[in-house]
């Protein structure tokens, strides 16, 4: 069923809300996912962010925990 992904709402949060999300998960469960290119990641990224370029995302979904909060940028 491929429609689901078009109708599943994805929330947008600002950095303050992202900070709060991290604070609400002191166990470090929140994953920041950097979907930019490696050279952009190297030039500056959020601490602890996982690099997974958009072009590779589809083939590497298995690397991500489905039940944990993921903040994408």
């Amino acid at each position: 069923m491929k429609w689901l992904q078009f109708f599943t709402p994805v929330a947008s949060i600002n950095w303050e809300e992202a900070n709060q999300l991290v604070a609400d998960h002191p166990d470090g469960d929140v994953l920041f996912l950097d979907v930019r290119q490696p050279q952009e990641y190297a030039a500056g990224h959020l601490p602890g962010a996982k690099l997974l370029p958009l072009g590779d995302l589809e083939n590497r979904l298995g690397e991500l925990a489905r039940e944990k909060p993921i903040v994408i940028y």
């Binding site: 689901l4 992904q5 992202a18 979904l61 489905r66 993921i70 940028y73």
Partner: peptide, 23 residues
């Protein structure tokens, strides 16, 4: 891309990294 594939808590960081005001 992730929504609807079993990922339950997905958020877009509005403004991307340039809006991030931390380290």
């Amino acid at each position: 891309m992730l929504a609807g594939k079993g990922f339950e808590k997905i958020y877009n960081l509005s403004g991307g990294i340039k809006a991030w005001d931390k380290e």
